[in-house]
Design a protein around this nucleic acid. Structure first.
Lengths: 210, 210, 210, 210
DNA sequence: GATGAATGAGAATTCATTCAT
DNA sequence: GATGAATGAATTCTCATTCAT
C-alpha cells in the first residue's frame, strides 16, 4: 500500500494533546505492539489486540494513529533513530583515540543495537521496507556516512586518500548490513572479539589501502 | 501466519502434487503470482486472484500448493537458487583469468541478479524472511563462501594468508548485502563501472592485505 | 470438526462476550438459528445466513460466539436445561399426590418437551452428541435420577425395596429414551393417554415389584 | 510416501480383476470409511480421502455410489441389519429354555453389538438419523417386536396377558435405547452381569405383571 | 476525549462431483 | 469400467475501521 493512501486529511486530534495522557498512551501502544510482535509475529498483530494489551480502547488507539501501518511506521522510525544516535555518539572523538577507535566503538554499538529486540526490530524494518521506506531505512546510514565524510581529516592518516562518496557508501553499507545479517542469522561468533576485529579490519584496510 | 502457529495438525489429505500437467500449471501460478506482486504488492495478492490470472481454477491451485505461503516460499527458493547458480558460474575459473576476475564476474552477476524483478524479488525475500527462513536465505551465500574457501589457492597470491571462515563470512555478506541494499535503494550508480570497481576493490584489499 | 482437531492454538483475541446488548443479540442469534434449522436442516445452516436472519452483522455474531459449533452447543445446553427444569418441577411433591403422580407428571412433561421444536431439538442433540457431549447429554437425566433417589422414601411404598443406583439408571433412561425415540419416530399414539399409561405402568411395576 | 502411495494405487488397480471386483471394491470403500470415521470423525470424512484410503480412484468410488451420503447410508443399513439378525438369532427358541432365556440372550447380543465399533456405529446412526431415516432406524426394533408378538404364546406364561402392540413398542424401545445410551455414555457397569440382570428384570416384570 | 459494539468486505480454503482420457 | 486432474460454489472466519454514546 502506498504511503500516500493514508488519510492524512483527517484532523490530527492527536499531536501532543494533554502532554501527559498523550505521551503515555502512545508509549503503551508501542509497548503492546512490541510485545505482541515478539510473541506472535507480524501475523499475530491486529489493532484490537494492540488496544487490549495496551489497556486502551480501540477507539482511543485510532485517536492517536490513523491506521495500523502508522503505528509500525512510527516505531520503525524511532528504532532507526535510536541506533543512529548511538552510532553517532560512538563516532564522536574521544580523548586518546587512535584513528580506528571510533570505528570500533561504532561497530560495537551496531552489534549491540541489532541484537537487542531482534525479532521486533526485524519485523519493524520489514514493515518499513515493504511500505517503500527504502530511503528512510537508508537515511541513518547516510547520515553516518556524511558524518564520516566531514571527519575524514581527523579519522584518516594524512597520507590516506580522501574517501569518495561511493567509497563511503560501500563501506557503511558493508559494515551495517553484515552486522544486521549476522544478527538475523544469529551466528555464534556474533558477540566475539574476533568478529569485531574482523569488521574493524574491514574498515581499516578498505579506507587505508590505495 | 508465523510458522509456529501454523495449523500443522490439520489432515493433509490433499491430492499430492506432481499431477501430470504439473510443470506448466506450477509455472502459470508462479507467473501469475509474480505479475500480481509486481503490480499490486504483497497486500494485493490473494489466492483467488492468482488462480484467476493464472487461468487455473482455485481448486487446482490448492492441488499444487497447500496454501498461499507455500507458493511464495517455493518462488523465493527458486529465486535464491537461480542467483546462487549464476554466481557459481561466474566464479568458475576461466582461461586467462587474473586472480580478481572471478570476483568481478560474481559481482556483476549479483548486481544484475538483484536488479532483475526487483520488487517481486524483494517481496519473496521478505516472505521467506518473515517465515523464519534465515538459514535458508543465508545458504546460497554460505555455499559461495565455501566454494571460495576451496579455491583460495587459485584465487589468492601465494603469499596471501589463507582466509579464515570468519573472514569469508564477512566478505561474502559485505558484498552480497551491499549490492542487495543498493538495488533496493535503487541508487543511481548501481550499474556504473565505478560501483563495480569499488566492490572489486573491497574484495581485493580485504583479501590481500595482512 | 471434531473436538480433538479443533484449532485451540489459535489466538483467542476476540473481544469477550457479554457486550452490553448481549442478551438480546444472543437471543436473536438463537432464534435465527432455530428458524433456519427448522426450515433447512443442519446442512442449510451457515453463519452468514444466521447473521442475516438475525438481523445482525456477521462480525457481531463472531463477537458473541467463537464459531458456529458454539452456537449450536449453547442452544443444545439450554434446551437440555429447560427440559430438565420442567421435569424437576413435575417431580416436586404436590398436595394430594398419590405415589405415582409425580412420575405421571414427569412423563407428561417429557412427552410435551420432546415434541416441541422437534426437528430443531433433534439437530441440537445430534450436534452435542457428535461433539462428544455424551456426559453432558446424560447429565439432566442423571440429575433427575439423583433427585428420585433422594425422594425414594416419599415416592415408594414403605415395603418397596430402596432402588439401587443401577435400577434408577435403567428406569430413567428407559423412560427418557423411549419417549425421545417415539417423538422422533412421530408415532401416532405419542399423545394418547394409553401411551402415557403404558409408561406410568413401566415405572410402577419396575419400581414396586421385587 | 505420497508418490509411493500413488504408484501402489495404480498397480493395484489390477489384482482381482473381473471376479467380484464390485463386491470387493464396495468392501474396501466401507472399510476405508469406517477407518476414517473411527480416526477422524464425521468431519474428517471426505470422498477423496475415502478413495485414497480404500486404494480406489475417486472416479471409481462414484461408479459404486452416487454420492457421499449413499455410502454412509448403505453402511448404516448394513449395521442395523447385522444387529437385528443377531438379536433374532438370540430370540430363537432353544432346547431347555426357560421363558426369560431368549430375552437374556437378546440383551446380551444388544450389549455386545452396541459396544463393537462404537464410534463408527454412532456416526452411522446419526447420519441415517439426520437424513430422516427414523423409520429405517426403527425397523429392526419393530421387526423384533413383531417377532415377539408372534411368539408371545411360547414366551409368556399362560396366565400372562397377551401384550398389546403398544406394550411391545415400549418394551423393545426401552431395552434397546437404554443399552444404546449406556454404550454411548460408556458407563462402567455396561458389561456387568448386574446390568444384564437389571434389564432382564425390566423385561420380566413389565411383561408378567398385570 | 474515551469507549467498545458493530460493521462487512474480503480472504483462505474445502470438497463433492464431473468428465475427458 | 477405471482414473484423477480439474472445477468452483460455498463457507467459515478475520480485522481494520467507524461512530453513537
Amino acid at each position: 500500500m502506498a504511503l500516500d493512501t493514508a488519510k492524512k486529511n483527517k484532523q490530527k486530534q492527536r499531536r501532543e494533546a494533554q502532554r501527559s495522557g498523550s505521551r503515555e498512551t502512545v508509549e503503551l501502544i508501542f509497548e503492546a505492539t512490541a510485545r505482541i510482535l515478539a510473541a506472535h509475529g507480524r501475523a499475530g498483530l491486529n489493532t484490537n489486540r494492540i488496544a487490549e494489551v495496551a489497556g486502551v480502547s480501540i477507539g482511543s488507539l485510532y485517536g492517536y494513529f490513523p491506521n495500523k501501518q502508522a503505528i509500525l511506521l512510527a516505531m520503525a522510525r524511532r528504532e532507526l533513530d535510536h541506533l543512529r544516535d548511538r552510532v553517532k555518539v560512538a563516532l564522536a572523538p574521544a580523548p586518546g583515540d587512535s584513528p580506528i577507535d571510533p570505528a570500533r566503538r561504532a561497530i560495537r554499538a551496531l552489534i549491540k543495537g541489532y541484537t537487542a529486540r531482534g525479532r521486533v526490530r526485524r519485523i519493524l524494518m520489514e514493515t518499513l521496507f515493504s511500505m517503500g521506506g527504502h530511503e528512510e531505512m537508508a537515511r541513518p546510514v547516510s547520515e553516518v556516512a556524511e558524518l564520516l565524510r566531514g571527519r575524514a581529516g581527523d579519522l584518516l592518516p594524512a597520507e590516506a586518500p580522501s574517501p569518495s562518496e561511493m567509497r563511503l557508501y560501500v563501506l557503511t553499507r558493508a559494515v551495517d548490513n553484515t552486522i544486521r545479517t549476522a544478527s538475523y542469522e544469529n551466528i555464534d561468533f556474533l558477540h566475539s572479539t574476533a568478529f569485531e576485529d574482523e569488521l574493524v579490519r574491514l574498515v581499516r584496510v578498505y579506507f587505508l589501502e590505495p
